Computed example of a mutant assay.
Amino acid sequence: MRIVQIAQRADDLTRAAEFYTMLLGCPPTATYDPPGLLFFDLDGVRLLLEQAAPPATLYLAVDDIEAAVSRLRDAGVQVVSEPHVIFGHEDDTLGPTGTDEWQAFVNDSEGNLVGLVEQRARAS
């Protein structure tokens, strides 16, 4: 099995389209309004922003968590939690062995929490 689609709540599709276009660096792949659906492609997984969906937390991989948070803050996005180490990967169960998992959290335009994740080589 593989993930095909993730849904998040979006009260205002136009506002959500602007936010996620800025966050992801690409425009929506499709909009259907009515019934209130907005889609983005995340490397083959559909992100559905839907007016009837419940709120959700989305975690996105980033190459440089500090740069991503800085860019979002400069764009006026509310940073809920600054970049910090969540845990170290001692084996490859959840990430590459010998890396630390850094996470930060921001609120999207619709009040959903978005986690930013960087797996970084552990400092010696």
Rank of each mutant, 00 (worst) to 15 (best):
P83D: 05
W102C: 02
T97P: 11
T99S: 15
D41F: 08
F40R: 00
E101G: 12
T93E: 15
E101S: 14
P55V: 06
P55S: 03
T97I: 08
L49Q: 02
A56M: 06
P83C: 06
Q51W: 06
V77Y: 01
I65V: 09
H84M: 10
V117G: 00
S70E: 09
G98R: 12
D91W: 12
N107F: 12
S109Q: 00
E50G: 10
V69D: 05
G76T: 01
D91V: 10
L113G: 03
E50R: 08
R15E: 12
L47N: 01
L72F: 00
N107I: 03
Q103R: 12
R15G: 03
F105P: 05
A16R: 00
L94Q: 11
D11F: 09
R73I: 00
H84R: 13
A16M: 05
E101N: 12
S81G: 07
G98D: 11
D12L: 09
E50T: 04
R120K: 15
A67P: 07
P27S: 03
L94N: 08
Q8C: 11
S124K: 14
D92F: 10
V62Y: 10
A16W: 00
T21S: 15
R2F: 13
G36A: 02
A123L: 14
Y59H: 10
S109G: 06
T97W: 04
L72I: 00
Y20V: 04
L24S: 04
G98I: 11
T29H: 05
L49M: 08
F39L: 13
A56F: 06
S124A: 15
G44D: 05
R9S: 02
E66L: 07
H84K: 10
E18I: 13
G115S: 15
L48H: 01
T99G: 12
T93L: 15
R2S: 15
V62R: 04
N107L: 12
F40K: 00
R73T: 03
P96A: 14
Q8A: 08
G95F: 14
C26T: 14
M1D: 15
S81Y: 06
T29I: 15
V69E: 05
L42N: 06
P96L: 12
A104N: 02
A53R: 02
A53S: 11
E90N: 12
E50C: 04
P55G: 01
V79M: 03
G76L: 02
S124Y: 13
D64S: 05
V106L: 00
F19Q: 03
T99E: 11
D74V: 02
L24K: 01
A10N: 01
A68G: 03
L37C: 02
L116N: 01
A10P: 06
D108K: 01
R2V: 14
D92T: 13
V79Y: 00
L48I: 02
G88T: 14
H84S: 11
D92K: 04
Q119R: 14
R46S: 13
G25S: 14
V62N: 03
L60Y: 07
L72M: 05
P28Y: 06
G88I: 07
V45H: 12
M22Y: 09
L42S: 03
R122L: 14
A52R: 09
A52I: 05
G76P: 04
E110N: 04
S81F: 08
R46M: 09
R46C: 05
I65C: 03
I86S: 08
A104S: 06
Q51S: 07
T14I: 10
